[in-house]
Nucleic acid binder design. Structure first.
Lengths: 217, 217
DNA sequence: GATTGTGAATAAGTTCACAGCC
DNA sequence: GGCTGTGAACTTATTCACAATC
């Protein structure tokens, strides 16, 4: 129907799980494991075997009964879906403690995801480098975003600046945001926002530490 | 039925949203706003008005038609549910870049959540302090966890150490974990784990930057 | 005999639609 | 008239159950 082959549209949750499967498969591939069963993947990913099979069905990859899946081929199939294109450039905005830690963390995690630029409003931080990323002043945001064809941004600015920064990023052409601020952003349709609300997560965990029944995340 | 009043058991998702509502209400309270409608809360929280009302129904708090909710009272009601008890102590394990940034980030975010202790396996880091937190060697984990009655832990160790560290934390009495590693932990029933899989989130965001249809998180 | 792929059933989460209230 | 509270409808996500396969 559209150019994404005709595989059924995958939900955000399914995509998340596929990222996890891929990571596990890469690890197995590195350690020489060549075949895997759905229940093995499920165990490592913290999911059920049926759900793994459904997810793989979703990407159109078929295993063989009794022999399971081919680790290398499956890893490749997922990778194909997840980053079919060449390198994607990512920007990080807000080079505070958390921003710096994330810049460092992301370096080299995924060969296809580069972070060539960071932004901050503090002139003292401009010019600093972490790995590939050179820090620019936010006033140069639009120019640099365009220069590097950046379509993804990580938002680690203070809450007060979150919405305005997001607006500017989107105006500059960014298509999706990884939002580490506590603000729920208002964005036009077509823009994907993934919220990583760390303080909420901590509060949740604290709450469940007091409830005797478990629950997964 | 059990001592949690008889309010229906709230899902992890609902708890997460309640954390968000509370934050917004606190902000409004600070700025002098005293009443709020479900659609206002919904707007600020990035949810629908109906869902907000359902969630509040879930905690047994009633607003009044045409006048909405009382900001102060509602904030208090949610707070009551979310941290009814006295201060809860939290430990952070793995004082790397990310661990340090999180220690700093969490300091003072919630008066009822203190982080009195951090752990690392590197002797060089032992003795260091960030805010309330003093860094101990992981070998002292059980002792310190008990000393501070710590029930919640934030896991920011390298992947290789994740499962073993989690096991030790749980053995020491920790009831719930905020897991920042890429490993899906195996935990006994009754232990709550919230996974914050940062690299997965970035991969997801990168994926959706290339799909023209949106999707919320 | 163990495993995959999948229709059907179930469960979880959300929205619709509207009665009741101020 | 505009809001809350909520049964019912709906949608999404997951699991069950089993036929097909190796």
């Amino acid at each position: 129907m559209n150019k994404e082959k005709r595989r059924s549209v995958l939900s955000a949750k399914a995509i998340g799980r596929l990222c996890i499967y891929r990571r596990i498969l890469e690890e197995w591939e590195g350690s020489g494991k060549t075949r895997a069963f759905s229940h093995e993947l499920a165990g490592a990913a913290g999911q059920t075997a049926v759900l793994v099979r459904r997810d793989l069905m979703g990407i159109g990859y078929a295993g063989s009964p009794n022999r399971g899946y081919d680790v290398g081929a499956l890893q490749h199939a997922i990778g194909d879906l997840l980053d079919r294109h060449e390198t994607q450039n990512v920007a990080l905005v807000g080079v505070g403690n958390l921003g710096k830690a994330l810049l460092d963390y992301f370096q080299g995690l995924r060969p296809n995801l580069r972070i060539p630029a960071a932004f901050d409003s503090d002139p003292e931080k401009v010019g600093g480098e972490v790995g590939d990323a050179r820090t620019h002043h936010v006033d140069d945001l639009a120019r640099v975003i365009e220069e590097f064809s950046i379509g993804v941004a990580v938002l680690t600015v203070p809450s007060e600046a979150a919405q305005e920064t997001a607006d500017r990023l989107i105006a500059a052409g960014v298509r999706s945001l990884l939002n580490f601020t506590r603000v729920r952003l208002r964005t036009p349709p077509g823009i994907y926002v993934e919220n990583v609300d760390i303080s909420m997560s901590l509060e949740k965990v604290a709450y469940f530490a007091r409830r005797r029944d478990a629950g997964a995340a």
